[in-house]
């Protein structure tokens, strides 16, 4: 690990100033950053430790019905907050299906949003990677890319975003609150992460010094609480990143889907909101034919970036299953194996 200056700002303003310098980066729990630093992937000159900032670790119910989650709320604390889990069950389920209990105890909400891809070539500083080093090339293309992107990728980068948490968040129109050099602004989560295009090194819409201070869920997000699920296919029952995942949330009235939300994980460089599929579902009866049509719509633009054509078909099937599960109703309690098809009753709910 390269030596770095350690700065512990007392205020958000101090933090923003300290982190706006070239070579500086924010440190929250460090569950991803320290891993990257140990691997030589990230070599910051300065760490701006925000974990001691006051007031960023609260879950607040706002007057307009929105829920504001402080960026320093720990993933486990959020998932285990009973009121939160009741209002936003798919988000809680996604949180609990990520990483391990130890990592969830440490990892923060803001940090989860900003975790980097798990592409092995990104993680290996001796491989060429446009995301890590602009213009160096992409060794994942033509390499071991069975788990890489099938949506939104470019010739320059085929990495995926690894977060589970972000998938239902993006489905439910989460807003990211940011403090930066020019003050506070906000951004739909869907606009936080960028697709690689010609500049994969620009992973997010954040500018130097920008600090995510909160994630906000609009009041409408809880309208889906009765029919919301997260489903994740992985290569171990637990403690593994998604091969593909999906968050499905439905508002069902009088036997019809009034509104649908759908997002996919593990398929693109960002949590993938499937708006075309949502449009298909709107007004339809919650039945297999509609789910199947939605799945086709969600993956219309998908194409393999390597040895990963199976992920397209898998993603379609996960969409159908997640919608089926959501339509059947949110379970009263998060299953023993969160987001797993082996959670009891997860197949034909």
């Amino acid at each position: 690990m390269k030596p770095f200056d350690y700065v512990r700002p007392a205020t958000i303003a101090e933090a923003v100033t300290a982190a706006a310098q070239p070579g500086a980066t924010y440190l929250a729990a460090g569950t991803n950053l320290l891993d990257l630093m140990k691997g030589g992937v990230s070599r910051p000159d300065r760490l701006v430790d925000v974990t001691h900032l006051q007031g960023l670790d609260k879950i607040e119910h706002l007057a307009d019905g929105a829920l504001r989650i402080g960026a320093l709320v720990r993933n486990a604390d959020l998932a285990h907050d009973a009121a939160f889990a009741k209002a936003h069950p798919a988000i809680a389920e996604a949180l609990l299906s990520g990483a391990s209990a130890q990592l969830r105890n440490a990892a923060t909400v803001g940090g989860n949003l900003l975790q980097r891809t798990r592409c092995a070539y990104f993680y290996d500083p001796t491989s060429r990677c446009n995301r890590r080093e602009a213009g160096s090339g992409c060794d994942a293309r033509g390499g071991e890319n069975r788990l890489h992107a099938v949506l939104g990728w470019s010739e320059n980068c085929i990495a995926t975003h690894p977060s589970d948490f972000c998938v239902p968040l993006v489905a439910l129109d989460a807003i990211v609150e940011i403090e930066g050099k020019s003050g506070r602004r906000e951004l739909p989560l869907d606009e936080l992460h960028r697709l690689p295009g010609a500049a994969p090194q620009r992973e997010t819409a954040l500018e130097p010094g920008d600090l995510i201070v909160a994630v906000r869920l609009p009041a409408t997000a809880r309208d889906f609480a009765g029919h919301a699920r997260y489903l994740k296919v992985r290569e171990r029952t637990s403690y593994a990143f998604a091969v593909v995942s999906a968050a499905a949330a439905l508002r069902i009235e009088n036997g019809k889907i009034r509104e649908a939300r759908l997002a996919l994980g593990g398929v693109a460089a960002k949590p993938w909101r499937a708006r075309a599929a949502e449009a298909v579902l709107k007004g339809a009866a919650p039945e297999p034919s509609a789910f199947s049509e939605a799945a086709q719509a969600a993956l219309t633009d998908a194409k393999p970036s390597g040895d990963n054509a199976f992920k397209i078909e898998l993603a379609r099937r996960i969409v159908v299953r997640a919608l089926t599960l959501a339509a059947a109703g949110t379970p009263a309690r998060i299953p023993a194996l969160p987001a797993s098809p082996f959670a009891s009753g997860a197949l034909h709910a």
Partner: peptide
């Protein structure tokens, strides 16, 4: 927590 991914100073 995993103590390997936690800086002492923090």
């Amino acid at each position: 927590i995993n103590s390997c991914l936690a800086l002492a100073i923090s």
